[in-house]
Design a protein around this nucleic acid. Structure first.
Lengths: 181, 181
DNA sequence: ACGAGCATGTAACGGGTTACATGATTGA
DNA sequence: TCAATCATGTAACCCGTTACATGCTCGT
């Protein structure tokens, strides 16, 4: 999936400049891109060329002028098409598992320590995501249905980290049991 | 994390040719790379230049000669270093959540259908991973500890899909309840 | 005086993917 | 005869990241 649909979605909510989109994407736990300029400004040009968005230059005194992008009717129908299209399978790449795969060579202490470090990283990440969600500036709340959907999206993200936490804690316990036997 | 460590890990288990590594990586649920030639042959050249692996050409009658790579002592100590190093946080990118974010515009039927399709894709993926694990040709079983670790790795992968399944099923149920109210 | 925020853009690079290229053998 | 398997490699391309570049304003 390309970032263009993410941008198209945001613009279907409200018009925005590249700079605003960048910040929204940066802060969004769901939209997993880093929010770098390169991608966003390029994507906007492409969307413009395809006629899916339009822009309007807004001059401002005492700050640089900005290009406000808004979605066109064509953009809306393209977005709808995409939303009902075949979902992609989620991408889950866990480098830690590859690391663990060759951890036989470690002592029990080293292995235990490695698991603890992973656990604490996941925990930090969980808190960070919760924080992002709680602040949740950039989320439309136009009706109860939208609220429900966005809630479920947050729940999904959190459950991912919780699942990971439960797994690593389980593994640590089993290891301890094995070692004390 | 680069694929070089994955390859180094495999070679710490047993020597192999690029072609064999390709197949192992393709079939491995944990090593998430596609297993394309470009990456593997390039990585092997780099590992060779760094002195972490060595190769030996094996001529065969009635099939092309192959280069058998094996890990060096330097490679082993580099691998150990990496294994005890700071883990990375897992990468979880779910395009479906971005799609869902703009699903307010859908009818209840369309939304329900979308969720069902996602559920069936996850389910397929879960079965596929289970199959891969069950076949599990490419997994070292040198001792009970290694078996335990590899078991836990498989468990992690499966729990990811199971968690995703539980989430989507929960969402479907809640939606039905809401609609019947 | 300096850094942060607003605002737009470009350059360089790395990782990863598909597809192409070659060539022998084996089984349907 | 056609496709698959063994075996190595290259080319073209896309996506995404960091870093660079510019310039104005506002608060400390």
């Amino acid at each position: 999936m390309s970032i263009q649909y993410a941008i198209l979605g945001l613009l279907s909510w409200k018009p925005a400049s590249g700079y605003e989109l960048k910040k929204i994407i940066e802060d969004s736990p769901t939209m997993y891109w880093s929010g770098n300029n390169n991608q966003i400004y390029k994507a906007l040009v492409q969307l413009l060329n395809e006629g899916l968005v339009a822009n309007q230059i807004q001059h401002q005194e005492s700050s640089p002028s900005k290009k406000i992008y808004s979605i066109t009717n064509e953009g809306r129908s393209r977005l709808k098409e995409w939303v009902v299209s075949e979902p992609e399978i989620p991408e889950f790449k866990n480098a830690f598992l590859v690391q663990l795969a060759w951890a036989v060579q470690l002592s029990n202490e080293e292995l235990h320590d490695l698991l603890l470090r992973y656990e604490s990283m996941i925990n930090t990440q969980l808190l960070y995501q919760q924080e992002k969600i709680k602040r949740g500036i950039a989320s439309p709340k136009r009706n109860a249905r939208e609220l429900f959907i966005w809630d479920k999206i947050s729940e999904n993200l959190l459950s991912f980290y919780q699942n990971e936490l439960a797994w690593v804690q389980g593994m640590r316990e089993e290891l301890n049991k094995r070692n004390s036997e």
